[in-house]
Design a protein around this nucleic acid. Structure first.
Lengths: 221, 221
DNA sequence: AAAAAACTTGATCATTCGGTCAGAAAAATC
DNA sequence: GATTTTTCTGACCGAATGATCAAGTTTTTT
């Protein structure tokens, strides 16, 4: 029997165990997230993850058979979080408002959840060896769909003619740099970390530059 | 005696050895560069570096005592390459031309030398544990100087009022994403790799968006 | 309360890794 | 050509790591 089969599956009264299992798995995943972000997949050790989760290493391997499986779950969690950040980019939306909302949301995410972002960035930098076909299938389809929306905006004369996909890459880069390269930005600015006001100013400036660059007028603050 | 002391230092006729040493050290550094880029510092193994350099591992440790020393040399090489890419950003330059030149040069660099860029990016993502004080001293001074130039442009009414440092961060992010996250971009675009024309188009679009975003008129192609 | 299932954990193993070492080979120096 | 210096290399070592296992404890089920 596989050690990770759902215990008490379908048992209505068996809630305590399930809650406990979910709780400890979440604790392990959070610990893993931070260790993977700091050291990458290769540098991360199950011992360190177990230490941060405050459990013996053998117990960690009871919940997650291999380090690879743990890493996969972390990546999956990040990806599923990210898929719905651009929901406002739709055919009938106002381009300026939709893009401004997207950029602001991405900067917010960089501020609130920099750690998963770094795990993902690390994975991409090393050629995405653990992501399987995700980039070329799901993410590609997502980008194709959003690009189609933006091309629709352009065709309707709502914005200047630009390449939609490279615009998306530019938005990703300009926003995620505040999560992925935070150590560089902090050091260069001489600040331990950016304040909420800093992030707000960043969101405003990035939004302004990109919208004006697309021939749009940024919405009033 | 330290094993890496320069042999025949100052001996005019000892050129062959020196050339040979320089040549093999370069081969090792190139091998190390690619391994560090693919696996990060922790994931890289001296055995794999030696294999790619086509020498026994013990011989690698003859030229570079520790993996750390090898990594430091790789990082140092990258940094010194990067320091002079924005030489055109000077007080009396035309902002549009200077920024356009900088962005184009950075995209070129992303195309020609993506591997060192990835080593550096990896280092930053993990909190720059091997970079010592470089970010907070030299790079910070560099950014301060360039920011001062840009602030001068703004004061002279040559461009819209923006935060110069975050503009630089945005340029770094938008250009280096084509080196650091190349695997993601290729997969999403469904191309094995971008063509020179693709890079040219990217440089043009990034330049246009950023310059217009700064209230500047992009120079004609 | 007995039996079964789920969970916990210290001890342990095989493998891998960075680095060392002694001695051989090659080159330079005299 | 003898001596010294530099370069090369297989064999080896201690430490760290991912994973396992057997023997427990706790919880659930009957």
């Amino acid at each position: 029997m596989a050690v990770n089969d759902q215990p008490n599956a379908g048992v209505g009264s068996g809630g305590v165990r399930q809650r406990s299992r979910a709780s400890i798995e979440r604790r392990i995943l959070e610990a893993a997230e931070s260790v993977f972000a700091e050291a990458g997949f290769n540098g991360a050790t199950t011992a360190e993850i177990a230490r941060r989760a405050a459990i013996p290493k053998a117990n960690l391997h009871y919940y997650f058979n291999t380090k690879e499986e743990l890493y996969q779950q972390v990546l999956t969690g990040i990806v599923s979080t990210w898929l719905h950040t651009a929901d406002e980019i739709t055919a009938d939306a106002d381009p300026a408002r939709a893009l401004a909302h997207y950029i602001t949301a991405k900067i917010e995410l960089a501020r609130e959840q920099p750690i998963p972002s770094r795990v993902f960035a690390n994975e991409i930098i090393h050629g995405a060896p653990h992501l399987g076909s995700y980039l070329g299938t799901e993410l590609r389809a997502w980008v194709d769909a959003k690009a189609k929306v933006i091309r629709g905006w352009i065709a309707a004369g709502k914005m200047r003619e630009i390449d939609p996909k490279h615009l998306l890459f530019m938005i990703w880069a300009s926003t995620q740099t505040y999560a992925d390269f935070a150590s560089q930005i902090s050091a260069v600015l001489g600040k331990e970390q950016l304040s909420p006001q800093d992030y707000k100013a960043v969101a405003r400036q990035v939004t302004e530059i990109i919208l004006r660059g697309c021939g749009l007028t940024p919405p009033a603050q």
